[in-house]
Write a protein that binds this DNA or RNA. Structure first.
Length: 502
RNA sequence: GGGCGCGUAGCUCAGUCGGUAGAGCAUCUGACUUUUAAUCAGGUGGUCACAGGUUCGAAUCCCGUCGCGCCCA
């Protein structure tokens, strides 16, 4: 049994304690009247938003005999509680508490109500002479008493840090936060329904990996006590989804789930983030390109009813087909250098240095191209663009390009300068895959902490035969950022990773 | 990891040249009672992020630490 008057460590000031004690006292008074301040349920007949729509045409000053009941949080009170603004999931409605209609018991209990309390109200609908749709309360019940004051009613909650640390307050106070996080849920719902309608099977693969694989990234490490075994939080589901394709669980599988990468935090990076990965047997990267476009276009049409959205001060046009150009061609366009004519790493490094781009002495031909691309091309990719035909050297899981052995069949889609999608014709030659892993292991030994690990278990699976397969990864958080015009990934993740507060 | 900025009442914010800590909202008391950020009168409320330094005197100047934001890597 805890002492309700005990000082909580989070409550520093005397005022905060005082406010809390005053509200605890009101709870006791309410109980003393035989009422339960935390009742088990309340039957809502409608919502504020639904009422606003339903009675849109009710004239000023018009009263009805229509009774309804509604629940919500008290956002403000005027005239000593005579007028209460109630907020629920989809709107606000004014509640009028006057002894003419409100029962005598409840009228006495008005002084026990505070801003922030959740109440249920029964009453009749009218529109006031000033034009406000109003519920003339006949009775109310406290459904949950709030022990803390809400942020300032006019300016709301502004402090960025508090908005992240106490997201529930941000959600109560800021419509924009509610809208963004609801849009996120809708976007994911639409992705699911599109993929399910196109024959994809939704699956779940492990979060705990004995060997972190499927991406170039540093993992979080953890330990299983009973098995006495090191495990890693997954950096990508790729190698397990391919095992499902090998097994023929379905020719089309997808997973929408969290990945974890033990790297920096920025407006575009959160240590845990949500990824869509899908694999389609007998398809190549060109098929996946079309799939990517129609998937995203479907989401936009369903949710926004348009294919053109604002992002910052720009307009992004998602209408398929999207621009498509090879990485080397884009690099040549922006630097004048045609790397396809450059044969070795030394010459590539020299070409990059000549235009003022520093590259490491160990950088191979492909690494140099990637670096030049990042520094000179990415910033220009505003409208949706598939960048194709990446260097093999930086793509250890992709199939060698059918027309050029130095490249792979891969594309990344850039929108608003951000990488949104990454896709390949998947490498399904186990001998070739082993060579690629060997090279990665060598890179790791020479200091590349993001290089892939050798994974014999996966190689063994490949050796049983994986059909030709196209694969796609889409960063859901960044996609949601684009579609909700959000400038920080923290705005599209309900509870972003934060440091301990001092 | 580097640079810049921010941190003052529960919330939103002022705080001049270094001279006793301020406002609005919220809250409490009272008045009023069909309001719309209700209004009127009065009151409560402060670890000025934390720690040190300079100074007769620091929210203010300096150093360090922590947290948040923005830009860069």
């Amino acid at each position: 049994m805890t002492n309700p008057s005990a000082i909580q460590p989070e409550l520093h000031s005397a005022l905060e304690q005082e406010l809390r004690m005053a509200r605890l006292k009101k709870i006791e008074e309410y109980r003393a009247r035989g009422k339960n301040p935390y009742p088990p349920s309340f039957e809502c007949a409608t919502t504020a938003g639904a009422l606003q729509r339903e009675f849109e045409s009710l004239e000023k000053g018009e009263e009805t005999e229509i009774r309804t009941q509604i629940a919500g949080r008290i956002r403000s009170m005027r005239n000593s509680g005579m007028f209460i603004d109630l907020q629920d999931k989809d709107g606000k409605i004014q509640v009028f508490c006057h002894p003419d209609s409100l029962n005598a018991d409840n009228f006495e209990e008005l002084k026990l109500l505070d801003i922030g309390d959740i109440i249920g109200v029964k009453g009749r609908i009218r529109r006031t002479p000033r034009g406000e749709l109003t519920l003339n309360a006949e009775s109310f019940d406290i459904l949950s008493k709030s022990l803390h004051p809400l942020p300032e009613k006019y300016h709301g909650l502004q402090d960025q840090e508090t908005r992240y640390r106490q997201r529930y307050l941000d959600l109560i106070m800021n419509d924009e936060t509610r809208n963004t996080l609801r849009k996120r849920a809708e976007i994911i719902q639409e992705i699911r329904s599109y993929l399910q309608a196109h024959g994809f099977l939704e699956v779940e693969t492990p979060m705990l990996h004995p060997i972190p694989g499927g991406a170039a990234a540093r993992p979080f490490k953890t330990h299983h006590n009973t098995l006495d075994m090191e495990l890693y939080l997954r950096i990508a589901p790729e190698l397990y989804l391919k095992r499902l394709i090998i097994g023929g669980l379905s020719d089309k599988v997808f997973e929408i789930n969290r990945n974890f990468r033990n790297e920096g935090i920025s407006t575009r990076h959160n240590p845990e983030f949500t990824m869509l990965e899908l694999y389609q047997a007998y398809a190549d990267y060109k098929d996946i390109m079309h799939l990517t476009e129609s998937l995203v276009a479907h989401v936009l049409e369903k949710i926004f009813g348009t294919l053109i959205l604002p992002m910052g001060d720009k307009m992004i046009d998602f209408t398929p087909p999207w621009a498509k150009e090879s990485m080397c061609s884009l690099v040549q366009k922006h630097t004048g250098i045609n790397f396809l004519e450059i044969k070795d790493a030394e010459a590539a490094q020299a070409a990059a240095q000549k235009i003022g781009i520093k590259v490491e002495a160990s950088a191979g031909w492909g690494n140099v191209i990637e670096k030049v691309f990042e520094e000179r091309v990415e910033a220009h990719l505003i409208q949706p663009t598939h960048v194709t035909d990446y260097p093999l050297e930086i793509s250890p899981l992709a199939k060698t390009h059918r027309a050029d052995g130095r490249l792979v069949e891969r594309f990344e889609t850039f929108i608003n300068t951000w990488e949104i999608a990454n896709a390949f014709s998947e490498l399904n030659d186990p001998v070739e895959q082993q060579k690629r892993f060997d090279l990665q292991v060598k890179n790791r030994e020479s200091g590349d902490t993001e290089a892939h690990h050798m994974d014999y278990d996966f190689l063994k699976a490949l050796e049983y035969g994986m059909p030709p397969t196209g694969g796609l990864g889409i960063g859901i958080d960044r996609l949601v950022m684009l579609l909700t015009n959000s400038s920080s990934i923290r705005d599209v993740i309900a509870f972003p990773t934060l440091k301990h507060k001092a």
